[in-house]
Design a protein around this nucleic acid. Structure first.
Length: 645
DNA sequence: GCGAAGTCGTTTTTT
DNA sequence: ACGACTTCGC
């Protein structure tokens, strides 16, 4: 009962890729070429050819992308069937197998997933075991240690190799670095924690286990990978093994949009794909449906400065030129914020929907002045960069309560809670923590004894904290985590915490109630915690604020708007200083610029301040325009000389 | 003298 | 938000 009317909505390039069903294939898809559509219809086509949905594995870069594709398929063939497809990030799907085969891996089956912030806390603890002098220049701080460890796991190579390749200034300290990282691994075992990188490492370990691997591999007939240019070594190994038996592997990517090398991503994976799969079919999607010709020309001329890339010829579908991109420079960052705000309110007055406007930038802090200016002008906005809903401090505190009550040895959560108490700092919380970890579970915890470990002036707060745990211990866990959370939110301890730490207490309180209604959907705490760290990146819980979007370029990947502003285009800010002298890094910055530019459908505004006045009063450091702007031939943008502010 | 807490300047990107 | 540095309080 095949309904093939969807075929009419695809162009020839896309249709060929969609109709190629068996065997390996590589789809090189330019920006705005309908990559997601193509992949979605390929899945649909498989289903129409009687492939069972649960035998399809679709791995994407974000869960949001997977959900969008699944929903589209669902609208055509029904939700029930569509939801049986294995679709999600490597991490989300991997987690399913880690839970199932925890025994094989010899890990606790009630492990918690540590997010980035948690992992950094564990690393901080691990660093206490070194006798090295801790300053950034002499011995790597926790940030660099995290980076070294992450790369070694994601690239699947030794710490020594990572240090000599990326952090050669620290080669003398390799042994000490290894020692700290070993300590980090040991600490994670104590708290039954697994970090993001571990999830991939452990999944690969499962796929190398001779008993378990065949079970997992035989489960899937078709494997599809989105954003292949951003896979790292371990992800491409996982992919190869998962597809090893049937060889029905489709990878989709654009080497010009590879922007995650700091996480070990290697677009060499695309380049070597045809070497690894000699019979692979190659499809190129080169028609851009998104942007006007003017925008596309600017993007193409910029990316042409990169030497390391695939040959591609991205053509505009829309014959119209549209308006040329505008480059504006401003007296300083405040003038830039005012200028962008002015332009945005102009667009809004002319009837543009806020959902068609986005401001993009290289780093989170680049949006500060703009946020203030938009607020002053009562223009609503949603921030896509930085912290997500569940990463907000007050929500993380609620999670810390749950985790602390589940596992008394979870020092990451306990220390978060203890540090809330006035008068308890790092030293005292270490002391109290060693007291708490002597107990096995919450019901045995002698709260009076723990309270007495705190200094006198902190005892009353400490008692309030302990009362919460006494009450949680009394609750019936079968009720699910909802009751515990309600209890915490209503406690004096938590209310005082909100009052002391935040100005917008009412807003934060609303968030907490929203958090509660989310939590009440879950029966078990571990299921809830999985969902929090893997699935809900938060966007869906920012209840439909109709504002314009402010976003880091990294998070704008895959999205599009009619009007796009890119701000802070200065040497040192974008590209960042650290990348300027390293060719590979500079080219990645340029790809990032390319991603930013190709988000725009109709109008593109590029701007930069002439001085960096964010630091000292009265001392304004002049700052140059980004080389990415200087490289663009002047006939491709509107003359900005009229726009001095 | 120790540990907590406040101030100042700087800030790459994230599943 | 974080590290380096200073000040405060016991």
């Amino acid at each position: 009962m095949s309904n093939t009317s969807w075929k009419k909505t695809l162009n020839d390039e896309q249709l060929m890729a969609v109709e190629h069903l068996s065997g390996p294939s590589l789809i090189i898809a330019g920006a705005g070429s309908g990559k997601t559509r193509t992949l979605t219809y390929k899945v649909l086509n498989l289903l129409e050819n009687n492939v069972a949905p649960e035998r399809i594995l679709l791995l994407t870069f974000t869960n949001k992308a997977a959900n969008e594709m699944t929903e589209r398929v669902a609208s055509l063939i029904g939700t029930q069937k569509a939801n049986r497809i294995y679709a999600g990030t490597f991490h989300k799907i991997g987690n399913i197998f880690l839970r199932k085969y925890a025994k094989v891996l010899n890990i606790a089956n009630d492990y918690t997933i540590l997010d980035r912030e948690d992992s950094v806390s564990v690393m901080q603890q691990a660093l206490k075991s070194t006798s090295m002098p801790l300053n950034e220049k002499e011995f790597p701080g926790k940030k660099i240690l995290m980076a070294i460890m992450g790369l070694s796991k994601n690239k699947h190579c030794s710490i020594e190799d990572v240090v000599s390749e990326h952090f050669s200034q620290f080669t003398d300290y390799v042994q000490e670095i290894e020692k700290v990282i070993n300590k980090y691994e040991k600490l994670k075992l104590e708290i039954k924690g697994i970090d993001f990188d571990d999830m991939l490492v452990l999944w690969l370990q499962l796929l190398k286990d001779e008993n378990t691997a065949p079970k997992i591999i035989k489960q899937f007939d078709y494997v599809l990978i989105d954003e292949y240019q951003d896979t790292n070594k371990i992800q491409s190994d996982l992919t190869d093994i998962l597809a090893s038996e049937k060889q029905n592997l489709t990878v989709v990517g654009d080497d010009s949009q590879s922007i995650y090398s700091f996480r070990g991503a290697d677009f060499g994976n695309i380049i070597t794909f045809t070497e690894r799969y000699e019979n692979a079919k190659i499809f190129k999607l080169e028609v851009n449906y998104r942007s006007t010709k003017s925008i596309l020309e600017l993007a193409n001329s910029s990316i042409a400065h990169n030497t390391l890339q695939y040959e591609k010829n991205l053509r505009s579908f829309d014959g119209r030129r549209g308006t040329k991109p505008i480059i504006k420079n401003f007296r300083n960052v405040y003038a830039q914020a005012e200028g962008v705000t002015g332009e945005v309110s102009q667009l809004l007055r002319n009837g543009t929907s806020p959902s068609e406007i986005a401001v993009l930038y290289r780093s989170h802090y680049h949006s500060m002045e703009l946020q203030m200016e938009l607020t002053r002008n009562s223009i609503p906005f949603t921030i896509h960069s930085g912290l997500k809903f569940f990463e907000l401090a007050h929500n993380k505190t609620l999670v810390a309560f749950l985790r602390a009550s589940e596992n008394l040895k979870d020092f990451v959560s306990w220390k978060r809670l203890l540090s809330i108490c006035q008068g308890i700092g790092p030293k005292t919380s270490d002391k109290i923590m060693s007291g708490i970890s002597k107990y096995e579970n919450l019901k045995d915890l002698d709260t009076n004894k723990i309270t007495s470990l705190a200094p006198k002036k902190s005892q009353s707060t400490m008692k309030e904290l302990m009362v919460i745990f006494e009450n949680i211990a009394k609750l019936d866990l079968k009720e699910g985590p909802g009751e515990s959370v309600r209890h915490i939110i209503e406690s004096p301890f938590f209310n005082n915490y909100l009052l002391k730490n935040f100005q917008n207490v009412d807003e934060r309180m609303d968030d907490c109630w929203q958090f509660l209604s989310f939590v009440e959907k879950f029966i078990s705490i571990s299921e809830l915690l999985d969902e929090l760290s893997l699935v809900s990146s938060g966007e869906d819980y920012y209840n439909g604020n109709p504002g314009i979007v402010l976003s880091s370029i990294h998070q704008a990947k895959g999205l599009e708007w009619k009007n796009v502003f890119i701000i802070w285009l200065c040497e040192g800010k974008f590209p960042v200083y650290k990348s300027i002298n390293i060719k590979e890094n500079l080219e990645e910055e340029r790809r990032l610029f390319y991603v930013a530019v190709t988000r725009a459908k109709q109008k593109l505004y590029l701007s930069f301040p002439r001085v960096d006045s964010r630091n000292q009063h009265g001392y304004e450091r002049p700052i140059e325009a980004s080389r990415f702007l200087m490289e663009i031939p002047p006939h491709l943008y509107q003359d900005s000389d009229n726009y001095y502010y």
